[in-house]
Nucleic acid binder design. Structure first.
Length: 1094
RNA sequence: GCGCCCCUAGCUCAGCGGUAGAGCGUCCGCCUUACACGCGGAGGGUCGGCGGUUCGAAUCCGUCGGGGCGCACCA
């Protein structure tokens, strides 16, 4: 038997405890006969870098639920893993490559770069797993997966293949956000917006053959003049007069309706009205003429490019803005693109940018090959030279930047792959080939339905959100309801390559393809489509028939999707022979993460899914189901609300599509962590805390405890951040500290020198970031450690074999019945808090019981009994049992310390219990969760002890007021009404012990107060502390109490004197207030009497 | 522009129709043999402003102010 160390040292305990859990595979999950299961799929951390506090929150919430359910006896699986995070990872590795070796990805080549990224991935994956294990994450580590491992990769190909075969994946030209540095399309959410100082250029385009009275040119305005080289039209509003009149009327109305509006708002409105009115005669006539000309099919000459482009009418042109006309560059502007969609017959789109941001051969020679920014200057100069630059305004512009490369995004028309999200004719088959096969109108609609209150999947499930269900189901639904197509291609090297071979094939070769394409009819792992020049998409044999019928078709695009990697070697050469090449793009990272809840379990064929060495089998074994059949659908998805749409919605879509069932039934959205200034935490902002630094300083349990305590809802949490000064070791609060030379350096006021929080400045020492908030957690753990040490010290003498005797609850001492009754309440409160996804309430209930009731009262109450051999045995048994339950109750929150203490408790007292023994377990990880024992409830005992506690508190207040040292035992006299007197009678010893009284005795109602006694009141109890009095202090104290009571009585009297209150308030409320009033009046009388006696 | 959320003690947050709570911090007293990462006690708030509903509002409704988030938009 090893002695518990005197001081609590989390580092030693935590490392040893995790080692034991891992060695015994305490978290391993395997299908068995249990029907109750609980499955959490970890939101995959990116392998771009180490985890931060946000991940810590996410992981701790998952571990909390996982441990809680495991203790409840569920077959519990927490699946861990990491995401290859396509663009983010490639960008990080490319950046390092450039910084450290001065090389670009083209120097290494596709394979070389990918090798480098794998090395990076291995390194960071290890670091992430170490961080998660340091936090105590109880994942089944042997099942951990990576989105690019063979099992996941196979799932990706199968999913893609199915979508492709069902016609739900298509290729199309779309305007995408183009990152010219990384040379890839990036998603909307990978952008950030920054304001830059720019200019607004007014350009003139000459009208071709202007008639007398017609304008000789149109003026258009732009912030990106170089795009004019790609202009294919100029638009004017069809009804400029109508729009202007309406705008004027609206402004007037606003001014009339709010005649009191003063100051800036009114001045603005007046200025706006003035501007509009001036426009009406300065600009409107020209616009009306131009609209007429546009309807007549007139054109303007595009300068520099020297092309004739049409004037068109479109409502996108705003008569109240700029020149009232707008240049249309469909290939490089989202709005212009939309205009083009409405006028495709009238003009085309010209793409003028190369992938690297230089101008291509569509532009005239002097601009060809220029970078977009150089081209801007060149275009402006050239236009100025021709007198076609009207003017330039300075202006702040908001520009999209790429989150990854920080470069300015260019909207670019390019060919991308999409998943069709909208409804389709005949609907979409979900879960094809499974027992859950059913039909939905479309992919997005399927996921919308899955979250509606009336929906039930074929297995009777639906998705709901917690803890603020309404709010977040709205966000989820509104995003999905747009049913926007999902762009799944990325022009990267790192990721799942798109398994499609494509090429433009001449007519003659197309006919020869027949034999190859025939294969599709015979095998199920190849799917081909032919896309005719007019866009018609046909199955190969139909296409060939069509070709034979229509000799006018000279060539067509052929797309072939191969389902299995293995087929590449057999079919690849044949495809190449026909000039087909594999698409160079890779899939959006979210495509593989959308499959995560089923790909990790071996979908589509868990029986044969290839395993990494040492991994748990995915197929059926020991007569049980396969991992997929047993663990899908999962239970709960735990994440921040930021990826609700990106990831959560897509997992629902893909789960429904591949398996016909939702991937999880509950979504727990937790709060995000912000710094002390309310800014989002992130490493790159210099305010990101590494959980490992917190663990080093305060311990993992401390961190977990505080994170749980902070988790009260979906509202973001502020966590003030301090740096540990590298000079003094002092904590410097970042919210208030002064900056040094950069925003990432701060001054240590004591040392007078600056330190760096990013760790990137070579000449400035770096500081670790922590937060004092976590001290609370360490204090809790320290308290738990010491309380357990105290208990174990007292239990050491206990005869282990006799540690559990069935006890008759009714015959227990008062304090024993009290602590058991309170324990029962605590178990219920923790349970309810967790069930409501409110960790703060749950951990608070556990803490309050442990600290405020067990430590502050019960442990003190039983100290005398521990020294009394006649009474010690029962006290020890109750103490051991209570400690047992507290450890179980706290375990999901603070797993390490509770497990360590559990081991010691088990050694000393192998069997614990009160009326019957509790179910045992070698590891606390597997110990059954405490049950709410209704028979322990003792309302009367609780009321008695509560009264005794109030009396003790009042006596302590007197002691404090008179600065009575603890060693000075004072005699106490009590006077009380009959009922109270009887209730308190069994507690007199406790009161004496807890209040440090020499004696506590009742006196008669008419007894006189000793001259030297201080008085205190609790309800109708009057207590005298003898031998301490100071008349002035007494008067002051009693006077104060009197004032407070009088205020209370006045309030209550006016309330009860209010007829409305008495008539309309619920009877019980009125009755309660009457009782309060009576009680207050009685106390008032008592105090007045005491005061008079002084 | 549309929608959602938040503003409660010095700080971080609970409470969400019956006249305010916790932790930390502050102040006072204690090394009372589990714990000074502790114990006992005290002080501290017209619940962002203004209106309304109600017998009664921190709590419901409106409005204004401050902060945040999402979605659009920005020639």
């Amino acid at each position: 038997m090893t002695e518990l160390p005197k001081t609590y040292e989390p580092q030693a305990i935590e490392a040893a405890t995790m080692r034991r859990w891992l060695e015994t595979k305490a978290f391993a999950a395997a299908p068995d006969a249990r029907r109750q299961r609980y499955v959490i799929m970890m939101p995959l951390p990116n392998v771009t870098g180490a985890l931060h506090m946000g991940h810590a929150m996410d992981n701790v919430m998952q571990d909390l639920l996982t441990r809680w359910h495991r203790m409840q006896g569920d077959n519990t699986l927490w699946m861990a893993g990491t995401d290859h995070a396509g663009i983010a990872t490639q960008a990080v590795v490319e950046k390092r490559l450039k910084e450290l070796e001065g090389k670009t990805r083209h120097d290494l080549g596709r394979d070389g770069l990918i090798r480098r990224i794998w090395e990076w991935k291995d390194q960071y994956q290890q670091r992430i797993v170490r961080q998660q294990q340091a936090m105590g994450c109880s994942c089944d580590w042997d099942r951990a997966r990576f989105t690019m491992d063979p099992v996941c990769a196979r799932a990706v190909r199968h999913a893609f293949f199915r979508l492709f075969r069902d016609g739900l994946i298509f290729q199309g030209s779309r305007l995408v956000n183009w990152d010219c540095d990384l040379q890839t399309a990036v998603a909307d959410d990978e952008l950030y917006r920054a304001t830059v100082q720019g200019h607004f250029y007014y350009l003139r385009y000459p009208v071709i053959d202007p008639q007398p009275g017609e304008p000789t040119h149109v003026t258009v305005a732009t912030t990106r003049p170089e795009t004019m080289l790609g202009d294919t039209a100029v638009a004017v509003h069809p009804d400029p007069r109508g729009v202007l009149s309406e705008a004027i009327a609206a402004t007037k109305r606003a001014l009339d309706e709010d005649p009191n509006c003063q100051g800036a708002g009114r001045a603005d409105a007046e200025a706006e009205l003035d501007r509009l009115l001036r426009r009406e005669f300065e600009v409107l006539p020209t616009l009306e003429k131009l609209a007429t000309m546009a309807r007549a099919g007139r054109k303007v000459r595009l300068p520099l490019a020297d092309r004739a482009i049409p004037l068109i009418v479109d409502e996108w042109a705003k008569p109240d803005m700029g020149s009232g006309c707008v240049k249309i560059t469909p290939a490089h502007d989202p709005n212009d693109y939309a205009v083009w969609q409405r006028h495709r017959a009238e003009f085309g789109a010209i793409r003028i940018l190369e992938a690297n941001g230089t101008l291509n051969n569509e532009v005239p020679p002097p601009f060809r090959g220029l970078d977009r920014f150089a081209a801007r200057t060149a275009v402006v100069d050239a236009l100025r030279g021709q007198g076609l630059l009207e003017r330039i305004e300075d202006r702040e512009i908001e520009v999209d930047h790429s989150d990854r490369s920080k470069s300015i995004i260019e909207p670019l028309l390019s060919k991308q792959w999409f998943v069709h999200m909208a409804d389709v004719d005949g609907g979409v088959v979900l879960g094809r080939g499974t027992r859950n096969e059913h039909r939905a109108p479309g992919l997005a609609q399927a996921a919308i339905d899955a979250a509606s209150p009336t929906y039930r999947s074929p297995t009777d499930r639906r998705v709901s959100f917690h803890p603020d269900g309404d709010r977040y189901s709205k966000v989820y639904l509104s995003w999905l309801s747009e049913k926007r197509d999902w762009c799944i291609s990325r022009q990267l090297w790192w990721g799942h390559r798109i398994p499609v071979w494509r090429g433009s094939v001449p007519r003659q070769n197309l006919l020869n393809l027949e034999s190859l394409l025939q294969a599709q009819e015979e095998r199920d792992d190849i799917c081909a489509f032919v896309v005719l020049p007019d866009g018609t998409r046909l199955a190969p044999l139909d296409a060939i028939a069509r070709l034979k019928a229509d000799s006018g078709i000279t060539e067509a695009d052929v797309l072939v999707c191969l389902r299995d990697e293995a087929s590449e070697s057999t079919l690849g050469p044949a495809l190449a022979a026909f000039g087909l090449q594999q698409d160079p793009d890779v899939l959006d990272t979210w495509f593989s993460s959308a499959l995560w809840p089923h790909s990790t379990l071996g979908w589509p064929d868990p029986e044969t899914a290839r395993l990494d060495g040492g991994q748990s089998p995915l197929g059926a074994s020991d007569g049980n189901d396969s991992a997929l059949a047993y663990y899908y659908p999962g239970s709960c998805l735990v994440t921040g609300r930021d990826i609700l749409t990106l990831w959560v919605a897509r997992m629902v879509v893909m789960g429904l599509y591949n398996l016909g069932d939702v991937p999880f039934t509950d979504v727990f959205l937790h709060a995000n962590i912000q710094d002390g200034k309310g800014e989002r935490m992130s490493k790159s902002k210099g305010n990101g805390i590494d959980p490992v630094d917190i663990i080093d300083k305060y311990g993992a349990d401390a961190m977990r405890y505080v994170l749980c305590e902070m988790q009260t809802g979906t509202q973001d949490i502020r966590l003030p951040v301090q740096a540990i000064s590298p000079y003094t070791g002092n904590l410097v609060d970042l919210a208030t500290a002064k900056h040094g030379r950069t925003i990432f350096t701060y001054l240590d006021p004591e040392a007078g020198k600056e330190f760096d929080v990013l760790g990137t400045m070579p000449d400035v020492p770096a500081a670790k970031l922590v937060s004092e908030r976590f001290e609370v957690g360490r204090a809790l753990c320290n308290k738990l450690w010491n309380a357990a040490r105290f208990a174990l010290m007292n239990l050491e003498g206990a005869d282990a074999a006799a540690s559990h005797e069935p006890l008759d609850l009714a015959r227990l001492d008062l304090e024993d019945r009290w602590i058991l009754s309170r324990l029962r309440a605590a178990v219920a409160a923790v349970q309810d808090g967790l069930a409501a996804y409110n960790p703060s309430v749950a951990v608070g209930a556990a803490r309050d019981f442990f600290w405020n009731e067990l430590c502050d009262w019960y442990l003190e109450m039983v100290k005398p009994r521990m020294r009394d051999p006649a009474r010690a045995a029962v006290a020890k048994q109750v103490l051991a049992a209570t400690l047992d339950q507290v450890l179980r109750l706290l375990h999901p929150f603070v797993p390490f310390i509770t497990e360590a203490l559990w081991q010691r408790l088990g050694e000393l007292v192998p069997v614990r219990g009160i009326d019957r023994p509790f179910a045992e377990a070698e590891l606390l990880v597997h110990a059954p969760w405490p049950k709410v024992r209704r028979e322990w409830h003792a309302a009367e005992v609780e009321a008695q002890v509560s009264l005794a506690q109030q009396v003790v508190a009042a006596l302590r207040e007197v002691r404090a007021r008179y600065a009575t040292p603890p060693s000075q035992r004072v005699p106490v006299r009590l006077r009380a009404g009959e009922t109270t007197r009887a209730a308190l009678a069994p507690c007199l010893d406790l009161v004496a012990h807890m209040a440090g009284a020499a004696s506590v005795e009742y006196v008669d109602a008419d007894a006189a107060r000793p001259k030297d006694a201080a008085t205190t009141h609790v309800g109708d109890v009057e207590a005298w502390v003898v031998g301490v009095v100071d008349v002035d202090k007494e008067r002051a104290k009693l006077g104060k109490e009197l004032d407070k009571l009088r205020g209370q009585i006045k309030g209550l009297e006016s309330k009860l004197g209010n007829d409305g209150f008495v008539a309309k308030a619920p009877a019980e409320v009125v009755a309660r207030e009457r009782t309060n009033l009576d009680r207050a009046r009685a106390q008032l009388t008592a105090i007045e009497t005491s005061l008079r006696a002084l």
